[in-house]
Amino acid sequence: MTLALDAPRLVQTQPLMVLSGVSKRYGPVVALDDVSAEVYPGEVLGIVGESGSGKSTFLRMMNLEELPDAGTYTLDLPDTPGNLFELDRFARRMLCATRIGIVYQNPHQGLLMRNSSSGNVAERLLIAGERRFAVLREKAGDALAASEFPLDRMDAPPIELSGGMQQRVQLAKAIALEPAVLLLDEPTTGLDVSVQALVLDTLKRLQRDRRITMVIVSHDLGVIRTMADRVMVMRRGQVVEQGLSDQIFQDPQHAYTQQLVHAKL
């Protein structure tokens, strides 16, 4: 079975995000082996795989937190030319802050736990150059409201909040600047099942109302099934299968995907 992507014939828009031939080694460990992906505007790409499959490493590269040994990465945005992996640190940082939003599994990674929740959101706006306090308050409030965070707690520090609420603060921070793409790294792992459902519901709502392009990484097939339009299955740093979400779940082709799908409770 070939994994080369067939070029679309009907869809005329360019993919928003193209990663191609991305490889990364950590010493003797191959984390990513020639991985490619295309993400089209408005779609949700899910990446599944077990721990160590390279899915999170791949997502970190989309967020330019880490650079590969080989490969290219382009975003189809104005003023974003060429291979993003070749940008200097400053340009990478500005691009990430303004065009890419990310929600991590661990809120400590994405939030300043002792600052106020609204401040965590406002920081993004500050980096983008907003210098009006009233506007910061308003926009941070809007982003928190869109993430279905209770506004009467907007100035509470995340360290005082529950896990689900912390994820909502991360989400508000990620969408505050209306990013071109939202990256989600196991966004609901570690939450209670009921809280998990609510957070996923919020994500769905955002996706439906704003058509945000998303890439979601999870080992939880239920999460991927709920969220993703298309799915990439990764194993040992390689993509073993990709397809439409319903096809991957109803008719998995690869032995590994079948094993994954059948192992789901």
């Binding site: 679309p8 014939r9 009907l10 869809v11 779609e43 298309r230 439409l244």
Partner: peptide
């Protein structure tokens, strides 16, 4: 066909 076309 490409997945993205099918989705369309």
């Amino acid at each position: 066909a490409a997945d993205i076309d099918i989705a369309l």
